[in-house]
C-alpha cells in the first residue's frame, strides 16, 4: 500500500471516526474541543467535495508531473480534516469579536480583560 492509499484510507475513515468521537456529548466538552470538532467537520466536508471533483478528472487530462490531483484525491480529506480541526481549536479560544483581526489576535488573547472561551456554551 502506497502513502497515498494510506492517506486516502485515513481521510475516508479515521478522520470521520475521530470527529464522531469528538462530537459525542459535545456540549460537555471544552471550547477548544468544540472548535476542533466544528473546524474538522467543515474542513473534512470541503475536502471531501474537492477530492470527489479531483477523482472525476479523466486520465487523459492528467499531465506527466502533476501533483495537485494526487494530493487532492488522496490526501485532501486527511489534510482538510486535520487542518480544519487545528484552526477550529485555535479560533475557539479567541473572543468572537477578535476573530478577523489577525494582526492583533495574539495580543488580544493575552489580555486578562477578555474571556478565555470565545464561543458561548449552548443552553441545556
Amino acid at each position: 500500500m502506497s502513502t497515498g492509499h494510506l492517506a486516502l484510507l485515513l481521510g475516508l475513515f479515521a478522520v470521520p471516526a475521530l470527529l464522531l468521537w469528538l462530537g459525542h456529548r459535545l456540549h460537555r466538552r471544552s471550547a477548544r474541543v468544540r472548535g476542533a470538532f466544528w473546524g474538522g467537520a467543515v474542513g473534512h466536508t470541503l475536502a471531501m467535495c474537492a477530492a470527489t471533483v479531483a477523482a472525476m478528472y479523466p486520465p487523459a487530462a492528467w499531465t506527466g508531473g502533476e501533483v495537485a490531483r494526487g494530493v487532492l484525491g488522496f490526501g485532501a480529506m486527511l489534510g482538510g480534516g486535520l487542518i480544519g480541526a487545528v484552526l477550529g481549536a485555535f479560533m475557539a479560544v479567541l473572543p468572537p469579536d477578535a476573530m478577523p483581526a489577525s494582526g492583533e489576535l495574539i495580543h488580544q488573547r493575552k489580555s486578562p480583560d477578555l474571556p478565555k472561551q470565545g464561543w458561548p456554551r449552548p443552553r441545556r
Binding site: G11, L12, F13, P16, A17, L19, L20, M48, A51, T52, A55, M56, M77
Partner: peptide
C-alpha cells in the same frame, strides 16, 4: 446508522456520483 452514515459518506458520495 450514525457511525456507518458518517464513515461511508465519502465512499457512497463517490459511488453515487459516478
Amino acid at each position: 446508522h450514525l457511525w456507518l452514515g458518517v464513515l461511508f459518506t465519502a465512499v457512497l458520495l463517490g459511488v453515487s456520483i459516478t
